[in-house]
Design a protein around this nucleic acid. Structure first.
Length: 561
RNA sequence: CGGGACGUAGCGCAGCCUGGUAGCGCACCCGCUUUGGGAGCGGGGGGUCGCGAGUUCGAAUCUCGCCGUCCCGACCA
């Protein structure tokens, strides 16, 4: 049976909602697919839920194809599990008590719970295992944004692999990578498979599936020549090479009044900003002031510095700066200070202009090793135009939204939760785990981000709410209505899902709604087509329309899907 | 958590500065005409003006506090 628009709750909006900026956010609301309940909280309306279910089904089929076993775990979780793994303190974790004051959490992911179950595995003969579910996650996000792109509660497909060793994990990891490529391909989303940071999950290796789009929250560095792609959080690059001035025997002070920024300094001295160094005083995890040093034209990457420091840091306060350097921000440098210095690896070679730790003065000819000692690390953010670390190509940087990720967890969870098995030698051994996530709703939003025009969404057939949108020109008379009903029924019989617009509306409004909702094929039945016993078949993607005899509609639709 | 903006009918907005008891477009309901790209005319329903205090004879409008939402940043499996 076709879905009848006259009976369907599909509240389309003529105007853009004021609060929506991202394309997917705007279109999800306008097309009547979702509605907001609160910040980062959305209900899926009937048409939107159909799309979500289709994405879920694609994922399910591909997970099953790699041997995944579907199950379901609860959202509400005893706090104890999270206390054991040391994640109870995470600020994103919703915490609550039951009536007896027993502490619970709302799961933000299910490593703890699945590992609790994996404790029932006890022999190498049972391995490997891949388990997954579509489970609700709750996260106390500091800033939900852009509709479905960042929310506080959502359904995630998370799967977990259990292997006896690292080699086994490699196999499970690779299977997931291949399944993920198929999933996003089938959903019609372009993704980059990128090296990524392991983040709060812990573990040794991770990839993200990043769908390029304007509303993306991540930046991906991509090579124009090879397949290198990485989240800028971990991306590396070959820095451009400036022409350095001739080396000096020792640094020389120069007065630089009011030049407290790199731009001002370079302009004043008439030099290339790339031959300067930029000092970022921070307070490290041990509470002591540390100097982060990058080249003048580079940006310090906070996550990279955090890794180099071994924990979180904050910018130093003016009084802390004065005490450590004897000068104020804008005139700071590495020479003559007693605090630890972490310098970007770019600064190893070359002669730089650096702050003199004397207000209004800089030093010319500062060289690492000779004039100061530092720990070198990669702490700068890559930027477009720099060299690819793998080949001789050039990098570009694009925004993208993360739609999936895969992690090698190792024994990060199996050890604290006691998930072990006996090997052939009878030794108790922790399970080696991987975890793998996909957000169906985010995937749905990414499809919209990548496939839309000024009129609305352009769904691929695989996840479209309906395959065919039949516009029945009801005002043209009962004959037209009858034919539209027949065509819709015939298409359903042929295995296509049909939305029949039988509403008593004017044609323009029906066409506008069809374009907005974006089913891949639109069929118009009206007076014009009635005369030659045909219907008009239009592709939403290409806009091509052709008149097709009623008896051949199903075949023609089959070609378009 | 820092910065900015907004909150008036389902949606988009005006009114606020200069206080006098709420308005426009779309949508919705009824009637007539109309009908292949968001129709026309006529009639009609719908609002605790985010919440709470205060000032005032009188508050959507002025003051204070709170809440909510969006955007930028911080943050982010």
């Amino acid at each position: 049976m076709p879905t009848r628009a006259s009976q369907l709750f599909l509240p389309t909006l003529r105007d853009d909602p004021a609060e929506a900026e991202a394309a997917s956010h705007r279109l999800l609301l306008r097309a009547g697919l979702v509605r907001q309940v609160g910040a980062g909280l959305y209900s899926f309306l009937p048409a939107g839920w159909r799309v979500h279910q289709k994405v879920v089904q694609v994922i399910r089929e591909e997970m099953d194809a790699i041997g995944g076993q579907e199950m379901l775990m609860p959202l509400l979780t005893p706090a104890e599990l999270w206390q054991k793994t040391g994640r109870y303190g995470l600020s994103e974790l919703y915490k609550l008590n039951d009536r007896n004051e027993r502490p619970f959490v709302l799961a933000m992911t299910h490593e703890e719970t699945i590992t609790f179950h994996a404790a029932e595995l006890n022999s190498y003969k049972q391995l490997p295992q891949i388990w997954y579910h579509f489970g609700t996650k709750a996260r106390d996000e500091p800033r939900p944004r852009a509709g479905l792109l960042r929310v506080r509660e959502f359904i995630m497909k998370d799967s977990y692999s259990f292997d006896r060793d690292a080699e086994g994990l490699d196999v499970s990891y690779t299977k997931h990578a291949e399944a993920y490529r198929r999933i996003f391909d089938r959903c019609g989303v372009e993704v980059y498979e990128c090296e990524s940071d392991v983040g709060l999950m812990g573990g040794s290796m991770a990839h993200e599936y990043l769908a390029p789009c304007d509303a993306g929250e991540n930046d991906v560095a991509l090579c124009d020549r090879c397949d290198y792609s990485a989240n800028v959080e971990v991306a590396t690059s070959v820095a451009t090479q400036p022409d350095f001035p001739p080396s000096r025997a020792k640094p020389e002070e120069i007065e630089t009044p009011n030049a407290t920024t790199i731009e001002a300094l370079a302009a004043l001295l008439g030099i290339d900003p790339r031959t300067t160094s930029k000092a970022m005083p921070v307070v490290g995890p041990d509470g002591k002031v540390v100097l982060g040093l990058v080249r003048g034209d580079h940006r310090l990457h906070e996550l990279k510095l955090q890794k180099a420091l071994g924990g979180e840091f904050r910018p130093a306060q003016p009084d802390e700066i004065r005490e450590a350097f004897g000068a104020d921000g804008g005139s700071l440098g590495p020479v003559g200070v007693t605090i630890p210095i972490i310098a970007d690896a770019t600064l190893r070679e070359g002669s730089y202009v650096a702050g003199a730790n004397r207000n209004g003065w800089h030093l010319l000819g500062v060289e690492a090793g000779r004039d100061f000692q530092a720990t070198f690390a990669d702490i700068r953010e890559v930027s477009a135009g720099e060299g690819c670390p793998k080949c001789s190509g050039t990098l570009r940087v694009e925004p993208a939204i993360e739609v999936g990720n895969i992690f090698k967890l190792g024994t990060r969870y199996s050890v604290p939760l006691g998930a072990q098995y006996l090997n052939e030698a009878g030794e108790l051994t922790p399970l080696v785990m991987g975890s793998y996530g996909i957000g169906p709703a985010r995937t749905m939003a990414a499809v919209i981000e990548q496939r839309n025009d000024e009129k609305g969404i352009k769904w691929p057939a695989s996840v479209a709410p309906w395959h065919v949108h039949v516009v029945s020109m009801t005002a043209a008379g009962p004959e037209v209505v009858a034919i539209a009903d027949e065509v819709a029924a015939a298409l359903e019989a042929a295995g296509h899902q049909v939305l029949l617009d039988d509403r008593d509306k004017r044609p323009g409004e029906k066409f506008a709604d069809a374009d907005l909702l974006g089913c891949p094929v639109r069929i118009t039945v009206g007076k014009k087509t009635l005369e030659d016993g045909a219907v008009d078949v239009k592709s939403r993607d290409t806009g091509e329309e052709s008149r097709v005899a009623a008896g051949e509609v199903a075949a023609r639709v089959g070609e378009l899907l």
